[in-house]
């Protein structure tokens, strides 16, 4: 289990997510895409700055900080 003290925790609003896949680019390693392009969260705790940028750039506004 990832240690949440090392960064902020991210989650995906699955209803809003339409599989643009931008988060996999902005958070490489923490998020990968499945065969249909929907995010798979590999690590919930990510660097706060990277998380903020990824949340801002999500075109569906589906990525959020927990």
């Amino acid at each position: 289990m990832p240690d949440s003290s090392e960064g902020v925790r991210i989650a995906v609003d699955r209803v809003l997510c339409t599989g643009h896949g931008v988060c996999a680019q902005t958070l490489p390693g923490a998020i990968v895409l499945d065969e249909w392009g929907y995010p798979v969260i590999r690590s919930e705790a990510v660097d706060p700055e990277a998380a903020a940028l990824a949340v801002k750039l999500c075109p569906a506004r589906a990525l959020y900080r927990r």
Binding site: R14, V15, C17, T18, G19, D34, W36, G37, Y38
Partner: peptide, 9 residues
């Protein structure tokens, strides 16, 4: 049919 991983998975 709302969430991709369920709708396709």
């Amino acid at each position: 049919g709302q969430c991709g991983p369920c709708m396709f998975g």
